[in-house]
Design a binder for these strands. Structure first.
Lengths: 203, 203, 203, 203
DNA sequence: TATGAATGAGTTTTCATTCAT
DNA sequence: TATGAATGAAAACTCATTCAT
């Protein structure tokens, strides 16, 4: 990456960061490009030198969140204990959703309304699947160790993700601030583990 | 309710029904009041005789969905078998979300943006809690019967709801049509039950 | 035409008239829709109830000019003297261009840039051809009477039109006000009828 | 002209040439300064080292066209036969307009909107008059030879120009490509030289 | 001299809502 | 009660031009 490209990417980051703050404080829809420009201390036109549209800023933010989360997962889930790995995953995923749900929801709406470039949908879709497969891998490991029930690991991975997401959606609905809700994470884990854990009734 | 009021309510229904069809075909944001009026075969101004705003139509729709769902639940979960009751609840809730998620999401957004009358937020909040408590009651019944694990029944009810919601959100994300996804319902039940079921390892 | 339609057409006229005044005083490009609305004493949004776009206002204006001019021609050129008919045509056409050239030029530019609905291009094209054929008819009559040279009457009609247009373009270029320039009309007639060659009738 | 000046002028030519190609392919309005810079393989800022504005590029192009055309005329119309000279003039002028009409029209619009430096308007006006006088001179020569009718030679020169321009405008209107239209040139000559009236020399 | 990053003015169009009839 | 004509706020995006390097 040339110096030019590095500088460019740096400014994209600056703009995107300002945008994220605004998007989370208000909402994607309520924030104007002028707002973003002002917050980033740029002129409005300058924003368009770095992003082709307001939508692209949102995509950039979301893609980064997902990519970073995926990276964290790979880094933090290297240990052999599948159970512990899932614990980490759940916490990470919970945090990711709690932080980003409003953004994800706006992105989702844009997608459903057909206002998103297919390549953006693809790119996010790919990461989503990678993550799913990664988690499925962990589960498969656990299954091999006889810790988890025998079932399609990919389906179980989906279930995990969906349970986490459901809980975070609820927080949004209740207008709870995005504070770490340890109790909920425990509840999630309890439900999930008692669910997918093999019942070692034999002894 | 006087005849006048009955007639009025009838027309509100007409309008709301037309609106729902449109909201689901496109989205709340993409449908104009004119669209609704045309579909309902009324003049645009007439809509405002029956609803104070476009938002109120959405609220009306959502409130009805929730109320009806609550009613169904009460009707269908009268039998003593807690397990079977939860099965019914899960199916109902799954259907409810699959049908109405887009509407709920728009409602959520409007709420977060502060564009909803507090009374609407309250009214929906109350139903939500009623339902939660109703489900908690079922669970408590199951606990009393020794079928479910011992844990705060309200928390377990929340968990149930959130798991279902998480699964339905995923369908939205994947742009799946709102078709009954039996496999997913089974997966949900499997996770939930194996999770909250008391492990009868004793025999 | 129903009363509604008549009223609607009347308001379209009001708006279009205001627009014409502004377009001629400044130019199509320099006039904003807000300007038109203000001049017509309407709100900006109201303009869009009567015209789908600023471009359509221009089209409306131009189509009316052309249609009216065609009508005038039919009415005024009923007499048998082909020569006199052409005189009338030339005067009419000269006036038409002197009044409308700026509008025509904007319309032309919009067309070349592909910003005009094909139906508009067609509609104006049809009138143009009708007029051309009408003039060709006059010329054919003159030819039958032995007054005009034998040549393709449609080509001669084109020539007539083009000569007039050329003269009016020059006035625009010289920023002359759209005053009736009798001398030029005479010059046009002289050229068209006789050319610049001396008729060497002597031998 | 110093070497510096020559180099400068050379680069102005490079830029202008690139601009012309683009202006003719699309239109003055649709071409951005960035387009011109890219085509000329310069940075955008560099363009402003050689031209004070986008408008000046257009002026430069038009002035050159006119000057070159004037030059050609002087060179090609040295022979004594006035008739032949006019033939040459007509062909040249026809070509000039066919090539440059879109540019001229944009220039005209900018002028009418008051966006052109007075000196540019003057400069082009002067060439236009020179040309007119030159053609008038030819006509006067023809009149002296008894070839052309007796009439103000300047007026006849105007007529010539206007006839040619009218024909070329029509081509634009019909969206015809700028191909040499020999038939039209012949038609123009026929009209100009002889008019449409049958010479009733017989009596 | 060459560059391109930064700028912000400027305009069309949509649409929820009001209100006179 | 029903209507739809009138309204105007609101926002994304483009592009000629400037200027620091």
């Amino acid at each position: 990456m040339s110096r030019k490209e590095i500088e460019r990417e740096f400014k994209r980051q600056l703009i995107a960061r300002s945008a994220r703050d605004l998007f989370l404080a208000k909402s994607y829809e309520e924030v104007t490009v002028q707002d973003i420009a002002s917050a980033a201390e740029f002129g409005k036109g300058t924003i368009y030198q770095y992003f082709s549209s307001k939508e692209e800023i949102l995509y950039y933010l979301i893609y980064q969140d997902m990519a970073e989360s995926m990276e964290n997962l790979r880094r933090d889930c290297s240990e052999p204990d599948a159970c512990e790995c899932l614990n980490i995953y759940i916490s990470n995923q919970y945090d990711l959703y709690m932080r980003g749900n409003r953004l994800f929801l706006s992105f989702l709406r844009l997608m459903l309304e057909g206002n998103l470039k297919p390549e953006w949908i693809n790119a996010t879709g790919i990461i989503r699947e990678q993550k799913l497969e990664f988690v499925a891998g962990i589960i498969a490991r656990g299954q091999a160790d006889g810790v988890f029930i025998e079932a399609d690991s990919l389906q179980l991975a989906r279930a995990l993700k969906n349970v986490v997401r459901g809980f975070t959606m609820e927080q949004l609905e209740l207008q709870k601030k995005a504070t770490k809700n340890t109790n909920d994470i425990e509840l999630i884990k309890a439900v999930i583990f008692a669910g997918i854990m093999r019942k070692n009734d034999s002894g």
